[in-house]
Simulated scan of single mutants.
Amino acid sequence: MNTQSEIIEYIQEQFSCSKVIKLEKIQTLWSGYGEISRYQVMVQDGAKNIIVKSIVPPNVPTHPKGWQGDVSHLRKIKSYQVEANWYQDYASTLSRASQVPHCFGVKSFAIDHPRHESSIILLSDLDASGFSVRKQHLSVDESKVCIKWLAIFHANNLQDNHLASWPKGLWATGSYWYLATRQNEYHAMQESNVKSAAYKLDDKLNRCRFKTIIHGDAKVANFCFSADLSKVAAVDFQYVGAGCGMKDLVYFMGSCLSEHDCQESYEELLEYYFSQLSAALQSRLDSCEIIEEWRPLFFVAWADFQRFLLGWSPEHHKINDFSSAITQRGISLVN
């Protein structure tokens, strides 16, 4: 495991400082795979707070919904390796409009090391950078700052006919729910037209011409807001990888908007996303062609996530009348 003394020693090594204090544990990682904590580092110009993500897989993994097992374990381990790669190799390429934590260092172990599944990631403290507010639900207007963040993030890496090796070090298919890694959940689904269409939905998304690097877990809980909610930064890049930007958009909307707001405003928010995407592209690619391809994929992406929920947690509150209606529209586009 990453002991307290090992974490402090690594922080001291990275910051060339002698005094490090653990201020608080912020949260335990999903299924008990470590923790996120806040530390204070004494540097030349005074005290500095940083965030430490310490990954230590449990001896006996558990899952709140009973999905523990080798497949789940290996997916999580790869996700932390992907996140480290993203912070080290990709985060610095983002524009200032796509705020993310700065990475001060990653400590990992060689594949033949007995602790090769453990790691330590040192990140800047977004609270100290003016992003101290967390939200669980948003109004339609409040959601637009995150949608703008996603559009700019997607524009930064949008590709037309990308290389097969892209994006190196990240997931070949971004998001934590894509079908190839969720076979247990697929087989647990009741027979339905959603299950029958699962592979067609997956194929439609994976074969799109225009792809970008998607966040892959863009729920509202992974956004940090300024006090007036006018600015936002994102965290938790474990499932970042190649894909259609609609996957991030539908997942984000479902995570923070009520069923009523989704029903009344999804078209408005979809148009807002495309307007921000077009502006951020600055004619680098033909936004009209991207929008023409991605607009119907909004419904396909929604149906694809509903497919995951129906296997993973069939009683989930996100499975509602609106979501089911959008899912049927997505299925009609692939049948």
Rank of each mutant, 00 (worst) to 15 (best):
L285R: 05
S54G: 05
F131K: 04
Y178P: 09
E83W: 08
K53F: 00
E24P: 00
D45N: 13
K247Y: 11
C256G: 00
G174C: 01
Y90M: 03
W171T: 01
A47C: 05
S258N: 06
C256W: 09
S175L: 05
S18D: 14
L229R: 00
P58H: 07
E185Y: 11
E315W: 15
L285T: 09
P101V: 05
Y39M: 02
V334M: 01
L205H: 09
V20F: 01
T62R: 10
S5N: 11
A198H: 07
A155I: 08
Y199S: 11
T327K: 06
S175E: 10
P296R: 01
K53I: 05
K107Y: 12
A110V: 09
I290S: 00
Y80M: 02
L150S: 06
L29F: 12
S79G: 07
D141A: 10
A234Y: 08
S265L: 01
L123V: 06
E292T: 15
Q88L: 09
H116Y: 14
A234H: 07
I120F: 05
P57K: 02
S258P: 08
L281G: 03
H73W: 13
Y251L: 04
E191D: 11
A151H: 09
P314H: 10
E264V: 11
N193W: 15
A197L: 02
K78D: 00
